[in-house]
Nucleic acid binder design. Structure first.
Length: 264
DNA sequence: ATGGTCGAGGATCGA
């Protein structure tokens, strides 16, 4: 199976770019985050026409939103809620063979890395805590599962352009990294990109819109991830981070797709 | 140290 994840930052504005990803990489399943549209205005038809008729979405007006677009049959889907909010950050699909794909958009967390003064950061940490409790209570490491999405955390030193300068910047603070690590440990989730790109090598999936020249400054972060359970880890075959998509015209997302091949 | 740019939706808010 080939699976892709991409924070698209408005699926209506960038549906042509999603089709370009499909044409260039031929994934079986595409997971999107920040679709930013209610379900009634999600653009189903372009994906159906491309051979991806199995679509599961959880959208809302203006913010967040996740979608799974598949050319493989999907047996069922489930929209999950966290922190008492219905804010469209998690949709899971179950394939006929029992494999589950969990598509996540973890809260970004605002600017100030202090839960006492920043409600958004508090929400991010609580979201991680709730998920960390949920996985071992509801799923087993021997179940075939893929967790993808914009996790809004760059856990490793070389997942950011400057480890030192980002230690107190939300997305790379020690408390977030520790909580993401705790969630990863619950089922022994394997970080697929780092199975192919050594941890001492820089790897990013996001570059700010605010840079004058994203390529020149190259101040990126690896916020987008594909994890698999131990049951699938031995089947990992390939990984691509599509850095070039940061320059796709006319209006690139600030995130790029990550694509993984895994035997299921 | 600061400000820089996007998208949604029609003023700010969130990233």
């Amino acid at each position: 199976m080939r699976i892709a994840t991409w924070n698209i930052n408005s699926v209506r504005l960038r549906q042509e770019l999603v089709l370009r990803l499909i044409d260039e990489t031929a994934p079986d399943i595409v997971c999107l985050q920040e679709t930013k549209t209610p379900d009634h205005s999600f653009p189903h038809q372009p994906f159906i026409d491309r051979g991806y008729p199995h679509i599961a979405i959880a959208g809302m007006k203006g913010y967040n939103g996740v979608a799974v677009i598949s050319r493989l049959a999907v047996e069922s889907h489930e929209i999950r809620h966290w922190c008492g909010k219905e804010d469209c950050r998690h949709i899971a699909v179950r394939l006929p063979d029992g494999t589950e794909v969990h598509n996540l958009y973890i809260p970004a967390g605002g600017d100030i890395p202090d839960p006492a003064v920043n409600e958004k950061f508090k929400h991010k940490l609580q979201f991680l805590d709730e998920m960390t409790a949920w996985w071992p209570a509801n799923r087993r490491p021997d179940q075939k599962m893929i967790l993808v999405g914009d996790l809004n955390i760059a856990p490793l030193e070389h997942d950011v352009w400057s480890h030192k300068q980002l230690l107190d910047v939300v997305s790379h603070t020690p408390i977030e990294v520790a909580k993401l690590g705790a969630m990863q440990s619950t089922l022994g989730w394997v970080d697929s990109a780092r199975q192919f790109v050594p941890p001492d090598q820089k790897l990013y999936t996001w570059w700010s819109y605010r840079a004058a020249d994203w390529q020149l400054s190259d101040r990126g972060r690896r916020l987008d991830h594909i994890w698999v359970t131990p049951a699938l880890a031995g089947g990992l075959k390939a990984h691509r981070t599509l850095r070039e998509a940061r320059g796709w015209e006319p209006k690139p997302s600030d995130h790029v797709p990550v694509v993984v091949d895994v035997e299921v």
